[in-house]
Amino acid sequence: MDNLPKPDVILTHESDLDGLVAGVLLQRLAKKLFDTEVPLEAYHYNMWKQRELKEKCAWVTDLNFEARIDRPNWLVIDHHASEAPAKQARLIHDLTKSAGLLCYDLCQQNGLGSPELDRLVHLNNVADLFLEDDPDFVIAADYANLVKVYQFWNLHSLIEGQLERLLNHPLLEVMDVKRRVENPLGFAWSKKNVTELSPTVGFVDTVIGNNNLIVHQLLEEKATPFPVLITLFRRTNGLIIVSLRSKDGEAIKVAEKLQGGGHANACGASLPRSIKTIPDAITYLKQILNPKKEATLNSLENLFDSVSIGNQ
């Protein structure tokens, strides 16, 4: 794409490897085109929806395209399903490619490709699109798990923003051992510890292993009666993150109820900061996902209270 607008900021998704790859690649592209260091900001979906958009120009990637970012002189590069038409912003959109691959296409058009980036972007694409039949699927999942385990900004600092340093990184040995040893143990334990949040949504408690792969196996084997499975993760800053998975496109509907987003079968959200613990999160999710049931229970409780007071 010719004549890209000069961005004031680059905005990306904080929760996964795709957001990291896409964001850093756009930083590199901006440096090449405009000879300046453009700041990179990363957000979970809930925080992203609350961010004020004051910039005259921004590049946005791996965050759902929506009407509020359909702005003149804004560039949006994304691969999530969206019904919002682009009337003012420049939108590069392809459901069949990860955000990282879409951004890398732009980089290659501007002479920023390399064999190392070819490999890393491929692995990211396989992991983010969950391409199970690809021969690199297992190792790609290990790369993706680096961000899940060590978190976006920690990993960004460790590699000093140089994506190529992720290739064959020593921490991948840790991911390999965790996968081979922890996943079978974690799957067996989690299979016995699934809590109903609603008739169609189950909370999968996890103790060890790659949560995404464990949940994927539960869905593949139909080991629970729930078409949507949720895992919860409490970050060091206290924010509780919800990860949702399904097989038939149901996960995104649940994520939207939680002000989150993502893919049809793989998406996420973060809970309000007032939710401090996992038990509180479970209670909150039951209330959100069963509004009619909760309303009925509250009405019955009020009725019982009124009867009790009347008999005093």
Rank of each mutant, 00 (worst) to 15 (best):
D305V: 04
S270Y: 08
P135C: 09
G249A: 15
V228A: 09
V38S: 02
K6C: 06
P39H: 05
W153F: 13
C267N: 06
G19E: 03
Y43T: 01
G260F: 02
K292R: 06
V126W: 08
I278D: 03
G261P: 12
N265T: 04
Y150T: 07
S243A: 15
D16W: 02
L117A: 12
K276F: 06
D280I: 00
I69K: 07
L166W: 01
L102D: 01
I10P: 04
Q88D: 15
D18Q: 03
W59D: 06
L172H: 00
C107E: 02
L303T: 11
S190P: 08
Y45T: 13
V254R: 06
E173I: 00
L155R: 04
F233C: 01
L26V: 10
V60N: 07
W153Y: 09
L229V: 10
M47W: 02
W189C: 02
L289F: 09
F137Q: 07
V215T: 05
I230W: 03
A223Q: 06
D134H: 07
L91M: 12
S270I: 12
T12I: 08
G111I: 11
I139A: 13
L146Q: 02
L120R: 09
K178V: 12
H263W: 08
I208E: 15
E250R: 14
F187W: 11
G260K: 06
C267P: 05
E256W: 10
L185T: 09
H169Y: 00
T296H: 02
H122W: 13
K87H: 14
L172D: 05
P272R: 11
E164Q: 12
L4G: 05
R180Y: 06
K292S: 14
R180S: 11
A141T: 14
G113T: 10
E220I: 07
T283S: 09
P279Y: 01
D70P: 13
L232K: 04
A223L: 10
D2F: 12
S270M: 08
G238S: 00
T224P: 10
L171Q: 01
D78P: 04
R165S: 03
D205N: 12
N302D: 09
P7N: 00
R273F: 14
F34L: 04
K247N: 15
H216C: 00
R68T: 11
